[in-house]
Write a protein that binds this DNA or RNA. Structure first.
Length: 843
RNA sequence: GCCUGGAUGGUGGAACUGGUAGACACCCGAGACUUAAAAUCUCGUGGGCCUUGCGCCCGUGCGGGUUCGACUCCCGCUCUAGGCACCA
């Protein structure tokens, strides 16, 4: 082996990671070490394990977040292989999206060109990290071979009413002639051109995720392997509430105003009605009134205000009286109807029964407009008096002033009132969700075209499945139109109707890129199948994903959409599972100087530089060692140096003992000295500890420190510079310890370990090895330290044989010199003995 | 405002189910090697006190509590990160 610089100078020695890493990457590629055979669905007897990291957007080059994410996944993949699993570990590219269009415009290139170039570069970077992917399964979502299947899935969803079109309000930038996503609108202006964004009514395509709301909520209980945090976030996002819909008659009219409430128990406390400014009934209510114009102006003003408000500031509550009343069906009260700026048309019925005594918003509104406040639910032991209330009382309690329902508890009253409404035909129990249907239309170029045709005669016509894929139009010219959205491309739009053959136009929207990432994990199980999106048998074998790893920023959208797609694909007959990801690990961010790495902060660390300076193994080792995966990782250049130093120490040690280790390979383990015993014990304790750290919660940081401890023990008991280390420790035990170190470290530091493994003349390459076997007897301590406390404070220690009787330990503790001094002649009240741990003497 | 996490030496982080707080590293300091430096190796390294002892006191964001014993459990706060936010 060569060294990086002067081979003879052992003082400046740094192991030659460049040669070693290149060598093993080539071996793995040439031998397809990590390829998972398609036949494994039938032939392989090993248990399957599917580990997946969230695939990247090919933005150009990988960043530290990727390095961390993929290192974690790779450790799990390699560990599971050593444990005898048949591991599926694929990688691909989430390749559609707006950045490609922007870059293409800037460089007068084409999004496809830009994207594929980036993929080539980044694939190379991932190879350099030594990640054990089955590259034969690589997919890029912008490839028609992928998105044709997505188009088919869309058509099947359309057939079942799960994909539908409706009118919606979008953010429109007139100067860019495009729709912007919410996150692209910054303070009401376009993120790219700074022109104001205007709302615009457009038709768009939606996926009916609300049809699965209940199942998505219910199945959260099955996700035992997900962080509670993510489950909670999804539960809140779905936002189920149960209550009552109830119709209030408009006075002097046959019209009904329908409301939804989760607090039917407060229905006798209704003193006014608030409706959304967009509510369709408004026209009917105010038509012909002498205040019609005044009201319309007010409504227009609050709608405008709403559009311009920043997402995070709350508007002052305001409203206007429509001049009309409605009737409370429970007691006949006449209730004024107001238009209010805080009522959302998109939730419930767009109308709210206002109970100022028991709802804070209604309370504020009532105070402002001098409306009645009528308390009807008294929390236990409290009598509410309208004039004395400082704020709404939102607690449950006992009903008062509520007719025949007086004295009931809130809980009982809810049911009774719902029943009463139902029996009298003006209401029904109702469940509503915060979750909205998923709008997937994007007016862009670089996305999956929606396979729909509009015919004047025949209406909306899906493209026949056998005509898929509907590919993106290639460019006819290389000018700035190279990424013109589809609606600007006449030749793409013009087509013929599949039903009548007459002239027709194509849909020009492309799909949200979240659609591609909602099913890619399933596609990996049959990535080259041209007949069907997903081969049911193969998917049944591999899915669900046993371990999914990615950033917590995808806790809601990506993970919710993937769960939704899994259920849809199941109902379409492609999958036989309910949930896609059994276990989820959300890793923390990589930060530096206390802040997220970003160009604007100038604290970005480029993985390329690190790989060149220290090699992939060191970069991986440090990113796994510096923090447990779920926590943020503070990047520290000196820490990287420390990780590199550790590998160098092992390298020097193993190569310095190469001959001995090679010879010792076939020797039996015979304990001949206390040093032998100590090393043997530490070796097996470390095997146990590392295994537990990985199995329990993937805490590689403590696993690595365990291995460091073992190596420290090894170099203390059998020092490097000793002429004849076998004087103290027998060679087979050094061999055992080194073997353990290399095997235990290999999932984290794969090239390095594979090389040293070969250098000590092991019979098989490391990739074909098994995780080291644990000998529990060997790990057992025969002497233990028992702590002696007096009144809970540590005062002395005892070294005793592990099997010493509790009574004897107690006697020893009481007669211990230090203890005698402390307790003097005072009476001992109590002695607590914790087996093999401590004695606490209470005086 | 609501819902989640988090807070431990100069730093990153350990500590099983309530049982020796600070493992393992980084930084820093001292020494060895060297003409010298780097590298490497050895030792030290939470704070304070003195009587320098296998010593004592304090110490896991703050204030209480439970317990023989609390970083760990309970109650009440502070700060911080993230998510949601007029959802009726």
């Amino acid at each position: 082996m060569a060294t990086t610089s002067e081979p003879d100078n052992k003082y400046t020695f740094r192991y030659d990671f460049k040669t070693i890493e290149a060598k093993w990457q080539e071996v793995w590629q040439k031998e397809s070490t990590y390829k998972v055979s398609e036949d494994d669905t039938q032939g392989d007897k090993r248990e399957k394990y599917y580990v997946l990291e969230m695939f990247p957007y090919p933005s150009g080059r990988i960043h530290m977040g990727h390095v961390r994410n993929y290192s974690i996944g790779d450790v799990i993949a390699r560990y599971k292989r050593l444990r005898g699993f048949n591991v599926l570990h694929p990688m691909g590219w989430d390749a559609f999206g707006l950045p490609a269009e922007n870059a293409a415009q800037k460089n007068k290139s084409h999004p496809a060109r830009w994207t594929y170039d980036n993929i080539d570069y980044m694939r190379d970077q991932l190879r350099q990290l030594g990640l054990s992917y089955d590259w034969d399964r690589e997919i890029a979502t912008c490839n028609p071979a992928y998105y044709r299947h997505e188009q088919l899935i869309f058509l099947q969803m359309y057939e079942r009413g799960l994909a539908y079109q409706k009118k919606t309000t979008v953010n429109w930038c007139n100067s860019c002639q495009t729709v912007l996503a919410n996150e692209q609108v910054i303070d009401g202006t376009c993120w790219r051109c700074d022109e104001p964004v205007t709302p615009r009514e457009m038709k768009g395509w939606f996926f009916k995720i609300t049809a699965y709301a209940e199942e998505l909520l219910r199945d959260l209980d099955k996700l035992k392997g997900w962080p509670d945090k993510v489950v909670t976030m999804q539960r809140n996002w779905i936002g189920k509430s149960e209550g009552l819909t109830c119709d209030f008659k408009i006075a002097g009219s046959e019209e009904l105003l329908s409301i939804f409430t989760t607090r039917p128990d407060t229905i006798f406390g209704v003193t006014f009605m608030s409706i959304a400014p967009e509510h369709p009934l408004i026209d009917v209510l105010i038509q012909g009134s002498d205040r019609e114009q005044e009201i319309r102006d007010f409504i227009a003003a609050i709608i405008l205000e709403k559009q311009q408000q920043k997402p995070d500031d709350e508007q002052e509550k305001k409203g206007i009286f429509t001049g009309r009343y409605c009737l409370n069906p429970f007691n006949g009260d006449e209730i004024p109807v107001y238009v209010a700026n805080f009522v959302l048309m998109g939730y419930g019925t767009g109308a709210v029964m206002a109970v100022p005594a028991h709802d804070q918003r209604d309370f504020e509104f009532a105070r402002k407009y001098n409306l009645a406040i009528k308390p009807v639910v008294f929390p236990e032991g409290v009598t509410l008096i309208a004039g004395e209330m400082e704020a709404a009382s939102v607690e449950q309690g006992l009903l008062a002033d509520s007719g025949t329902f007086n004295g009931l508890s809130s809980l009982a009253a809810k049911q009774a009132i719902i029943d009463h409404a139902g029996n009298n035909g003006f209401g029904a129990p109702h469940t509503t969700y915060r979750l909205r249907d998923w709008g997937i239309s994007r007016q862009r170029y670089w996305g999956t075209p929606i396979p729909i045709i509009y015919c004047e005669k025949c209406g909306i016509q899906p493209i026949p499945a056998e005509q898929l894929p509907l590919t993106l139009p290639a460019d006819t010219d290389s000018d700035r139109n190279s990424c013109a959205p589809l609606h600007q491309r006449e030749s793409f739009l013009q087509t013929t109707c599949p039903a009548c053959g007459g002239a027709a136009r194509r849909e020009s929207d492309t799909m949200d890129t979240f659609v591609e990432s909602s099913w890619y994990f399933a596609r990996y199980t049959s990535p080259r199948d041209t007949q069907t999106p997903i081969d049911l048998a193969k998917a049944a074998h591999w899915l669900p994903v046993d371990q999914y790893i990615g950033g917590v920023e995808h806790a809601i959208l990506h993970l919710l959409y993937s769960r939704f797609f899994t259920k849809v694909l199941r109902d379409l007959g492609y999958l036989d599972i309910d949930e896609p990801f059994t276990n989820l690990l959300t890793q923390g961010m990589v930060i530096k100087d206390g802040a997220k790495m970003s160009k604007s902060k100038g604290n970005v660390v480029d993985p390329n530089d690190l790989i060149h300076e220290y090699g992939a193994d060191t970069v991986r080792l440090f990113s796994l060692f510096a923090a447990p995966p779920e926590r943020d990782l503070e990047w520290n250049a000196q820490g990287v140096e420390g990780a590199f130093r550790f590998l160098n120490r092992i390298y020097r040690y193993v190569m310095g003992h190469q001959e001995l280790l090679t010879r010792a390979g076939d020797g039996n383990i015979v304990i001949q000295s206390t040093a032998d015993q100590a090393l043997h014990r530490k070796t097996h304790q470390t095997i146990q500890r590392v295994t537990l750290n990985i199995e329990n919660n993937f805490h590689f940081n403590t696993a690595i420190s365990g291995i460091m401890e073992l190596f420290n023990t090894l170099t203390t008991l059998a020092p490097m510079d000793s002429d004849q280390p076998q004087d103290k420790v027998s060679p087979p035990l050094i061999h055992e310890a080194v073997r353990a170190i290399l095997l235990l470290l290999s999932p984290m530091v794969p090239h390095f370990c594979a090389e040293l493994w070969q250098q000590i003349d092991s019979p098989r390459p490391l990739d074909q090895e098994q995780w080291p076997a644990l000998d529990l007897d060997a790990a057992k301590e025969d002497e233990i330290t028992v702590v002696i406390q007096v009144n809970g404070k540590m005062r002395s220690r005892l070294q005793v044989a592990a099997d010493t009787d509790d009574e004897i330990i107690k006697e020893m503790a009481l007669s211990d010199g230090n203890i005698q001094k402390i307790i003097m002649a005072k009476p001992v009240k109590k002695v607590i003995i914790v087996q093999k741990k401590l004695v606490n003497i209470v005086i």
